[in-house]
C-alpha cells in the first residue's frame, strides 16, 4: 500500500500549510514518523489524506485512488485517524457507543458491530471501560479508546496526530507497545523524538510545509544539524 503526495499544496485559514509537497509513504517500509516543529504542516498533511481540506494544487493518491470529495467515503473506510485532541474524537456518551460509531457507519450488522467493538477494546486493553462515560477517562484511557474507535473500523492505514501530547512517560511507553502490535500501516505526526525512535523505522521531516528529509529513523534522528535546522533540537 502506498500513499503519495505529488506537488500537493493546501491552504488553511489563508496560509499555505503544505507547499508543493511531494513524498511517498510505503507500508512495506513500516511505520513512519512525521516530524516537524509547530506549524510545519504535520496535522494538515494527515487531515489532507482524509480529504478534510481541499487540495489547491497537485494530487494525493492512496494506491491508485486520488483523494477527492467523490472518493472521500472510500478513502475514509480504508484510512483511520486518531486526532490530537481526544475530546474532539470521543463524543458519544459511553465508550462502547463511541467505539461502535465507525463500524455502525460502515453499515455492518449489529452482531458484527458488537464483535468489532469488543475486539477493538480488548486489543487496546480497555474492555473494562466499555460502559464508562467518555468524559470521565484519564488522558491515557481516552487515547486508547480513541484508537479502539479507529481499530474497530479495521483500517489499512492509521494516522495519529501527536498521540503523546498529553500522556505521561508510562502511558507513552504503553501506547508505543500497543502501536507496535497493530498490523495496520501507521503514519505518526509527532515532535516527540523518543517516541518516534521507539515506534517508527522510517521518518519524514517537514519544515514550513515542505519535505526537508526522509529516510531511516535511525539515521535521520542522529543527524543533529538536520534536527536543529528543522527546529526539533
Amino acid at each position: 500500500m502506498k500513499l503519495s503526495f505529488q506537488n500537493a499544496t493546501i491552504q488553511r485559514d489563508g496560509l499555505t500549510a503544505l507547499d508543493q509537497f511531494t513524498a511517498v509513504f510505503d507500508s512495506s517500509n513500516g511505520a513512519c514518523a512525521i516530524l516537524g516543529a509547530n506549524g510545519a504542516g504535520k496535522s494538515t498533511m494527515l487531515a489532507a489524506i482524509l480529504g478534510l481540506f481541499p487540495i489547491a494544487e497537485g494530487t494525493i493518491l492512496l494506491d491508485e485512488t486520488p483523494v477527492t470529495p467523490q472518493n472521500a467515503r472510500a478513502i475514509r473506510a480504508r484510512v483511520g485517524m486518531v486526532f490530537q485532541d481526544a475530546d474532539a474524537q470521543l463524543f458519544n456518551q459511553s465508550v462502547a457507543e463511541d467505539v461502535a460509531f465507525g463500524p455502525t457507519n460502515l453499515g455492518l450488522p449489529p452482531e458484527e458491530v458488537q464483535a468489532r467493538t469488543t475486539d477493538a477494546l480488548r486489543s487496546m486493553r480497555a474492555e473494562h471501560l466499555a460502559q464508562r462515560d467518555v468524559t470521565r477517562l484519564s488522558c491515557g484511557e481516552k487515547r486508547r479508546v480513541s484508537l479502539a474507535g479507529i481499530l474497530a473500523m479495521r483500517p489499512e492505514v492509521i494516522l495519529l496526530d501527536e498521540p503523546t501530547s498529553d500522556l505521561d512517560p508510562r502511558a507513552c511507553r504503553e501506547l508505543a507497545s500497543l502501536l507496535q502490535s497493530l498490523p495496520a500501516f501507521q503514519l505518526i505526526a509527532t515532535h516527540d523524538l523518543a517516541f518516534a525512535r521507539r515506534t517508527c523505522p522510517q521518518c519524514a521531516i517537514l519544515q514550513k510545509g515542505k519535505l526537508l528529509a526522509s529516510g531511516k529513523a535511525s539515521e535521520l534522528l542522529e543527524n543533529q544539524s538536520l534536527l536543529e535546522e528543522a527546529g526539533l533540537a
Partner: peptide, 11 residues
C-alpha cells in the same frame, strides 16, 4: 473538530 472526527468515521 468533532464533526471532522465524525466524518472520518464515515458519518
Amino acid at each position: 473538530a468533532i464533526y471532522f472526527a465524525m466524518q472520518c468515521r464515515l458519518f
